[in-house]
Amino acid sequence: MQRFVNDPDAIVEETVRGFVKVHSDLVRLDPANDRVVVSRDAPVQGKVGVVTGGGSGHEPAFIGYTGRNMVDAVAVGELFSSPTAKSFLDAIKAANGGAGVCVLYGNYAGDNMNVKMAMRMAKKEGIEVLTVVANDDVCSAPAAEREKRRGVAGEILMWKIGGAKAALGASAAEVQAAAQKAIDATRSIGVGLAPCTLPANGKPNFQIEPGKMEFGIGHHGEPGVNITELKSANEVADDMLKIVLDDHDLATGDEVCVLISGLGATPVNELYVLYDRIESQLAAQGITTYRGFAGNYFTSLEMMGATLTVMKLDDELKALLDHDVATPAMGVNG
């Protein structure tokens, strides 16, 4: 295993410790819980708190989106494993400015249970908690069973929109509605070229043969819809876009936000290669890319591959997307 590891069981603590040292201008560790990362600005009295959380190994997600005008507090789990209910509760408390808290998270069995328990505990402490569950991963379930779909990189756009809405002084119900609207307008797909390894296991949990690619792969190596020969970047981009567009009712004249994320080990320049093709293919269909992102925004350890996320925009979503943010993983300045 060609990796930088001390004790595999200590890797999450060490990651979080390093992270808050590097980004001490924007974030801090919750003094009550070393598995909760909090924005320097939080809690803001009278502002709706925005919380998320998830397993580690997806850096810069989830902690990297903590900061100004985005996520107020993040619950940190073990590698690929949901944070505890207590960590979600402590994140809710750290983000609470007295106007309620919205927990915006991804649709995974563990996160659903731990958030549910944390909500119950928060209610006892008198904190109003609303949730939105991201389910943007097209290949994780058919359209008819959208409630079963997982949340992947589309969560970032959900946090961006929800965080901006909260920063503008909206109520908890309005923040929830905006975040829900954002995720409902978002579709994602992943393609894997090589697997990832949990350091404690020491070997990959699945295989992708050299020269092959797994289409529709999940953020933890969940198998995709099919395994095919590795194609050229343009063909892969076209195939990814087709799956997203087939699931999304986009029409000529629509405007979208495009986010391409690497899965960890793919060179960043190749993400721009994919982006280049996707934006021009969208343009060829009369769809305008209003704003784009390409980089390692939501990874899966050292998996090789990329995800494509497309969010359909209206005037409200455009304005919220343009709202300034300053976080370790994402900056928008007008």
Partner: peptide, 12 residues
């Protein structure tokens, strides 16, 4: 299990 482990098995 509930306050230190998390995942799915922690709450279950």
């Amino acid at each position: 299990l509930m306050s230190e482990i998390g995942g799915s098995m922690g709450p279950l």
